[in-house]
Design a protein around this nucleic acid. Structure first.
Lengths: 194, 194
DNA sequence: GTTGGCATGTAACTGGTTACATGATTAG
DNA sequence: CTAATCATGTAACCAGTTACATGCCAAC
């Protein structure tokens, strides 16, 4: 009974993408860019070294598979890698959640700003988050076919992303509307007893 | 006319906290922990070196101010630091937004899980996000006084955090309810044409 | 007397991005 | 012919966390 393999952050997405059918490091990167990028990224500088580590540990198998004159290495999960992926997916270790938000940091310090400066900031934040929503929607177009092929979960994750960013956009749009009307940042009626 | 100083990520929160009244590196850390931590952290390993860099650049002034036998250095913003803070707050550079979410990554790969494994995951995610809401609420208790003193914006940022995490919790709670009822991850009626 | 808070600091490590370099193949 | 895409890889850098070390003071 080998001790459970603890996957590095990058290994999680690498093994998962191999399971979903990615074959090369290039493949993994390409798929990540149009799917998990917004909540779990991976760069070449991470992927290639990680694939080697995983091969050394026996979680993946490498096979040279040149396409014409282009060097190409195809990877696939070994049974051990398959188990490690499932183990991670079903473990109840505390889930990583990282959130870094400069718009919110500026808002936090906004008491030093004048009303028009504050409004300009809120406007910018609203616009940027709306752009994110638009990009998510583009990705979503075409996801419906995957569901027919039994891959519902990527679609669900995408829906989550779209709805979350919509919520954020709406929050800023609401604040923008109130500030444009001349309201204070916090009206007495907003105060809720917790 | 000195070229505009580009603030490092940590400098942004350090200067901001000095403006809000923090005096020492220890102060900054303490305040960050109960306020911006969830969307903009800072560790000692960042704060102390950063304060020195800022002093070297003339954005802050250091003064030895021991308390009894405890060595203590008090920092305050120089006019140049004041300007750099305002410049950052009013600039329209693209806002940093980073989001890393392991719960969502697992959901993305969840097609390999059985219904009960999926439900267990969703349950865990819902529980963890509810805990975050609870922690935010604790911080919120007592924030009302600050508003009376004209510091509305930290309160607004906190409200944002609470409401965002409530939204996330509710999203998972809804999914959990549907899965517990035996629904598929995506019901045909969920499919929206974008 | 010992715990907890105040206060400062650093070394080692981890994780990740960016930029660069190389080169074949395919489509226009 | 040339631009885009496929494919692999590395070096340099940046940011950040964790763990450790030190030591005073106040409260219990």
């Amino acid at each position: 009974m080998s001790a459970a393999v603890k996957l590095t952050p990058t290994a999680r997405v690498v093994l998962g993408m191999l399971k979903l059918g990615a074959q090369t490091g290039y493949d993994i990167k390409r798929i990540v860019e149009v799917s998990t990028r917004f909540f779990w990224g991976a760069s070449y500088g991470q992927i290639y070294p990680e694939l080697r580590r995983l091969a050394a540990e026996g979680l993946v198998e490498a096979e040279a598979a040149p396409r014409g004159g282009i060097a190409r290495t195809v990877y696939r999960l070994t049974p051990k890698g398959e188990r490690a992926l499932r183990h991670w997916l079903t473990s109840d270790d505390e889930l990583i959640f990282e959130y870094r938000d400069e718009a919110l940091l500026k808002l936090f310090f906004a008491d030093v700003l004048g009303p028009d400066e504050l409004l300009a900031h809120v406007r910018q934040a609203r616009a940027e988050f709306q752009d994110v929503v638009a990009r998510f929607r583009d990705i979503g177009a075409g996801a419906e076919e995957d569901i027919a092929r039994g891959q519902a979960s990527p679609y669900v994750a995408l829906r989550y992303g779209i709805e979350l960013m919509e919520w954020v956009s709406a929050w800023y749009a609401d604040l923008e509307r109130r500030l444009a009307r001349g309201d204070a940042l916090v009206e007495p009626k907003d105060l809720q007893s917790s």
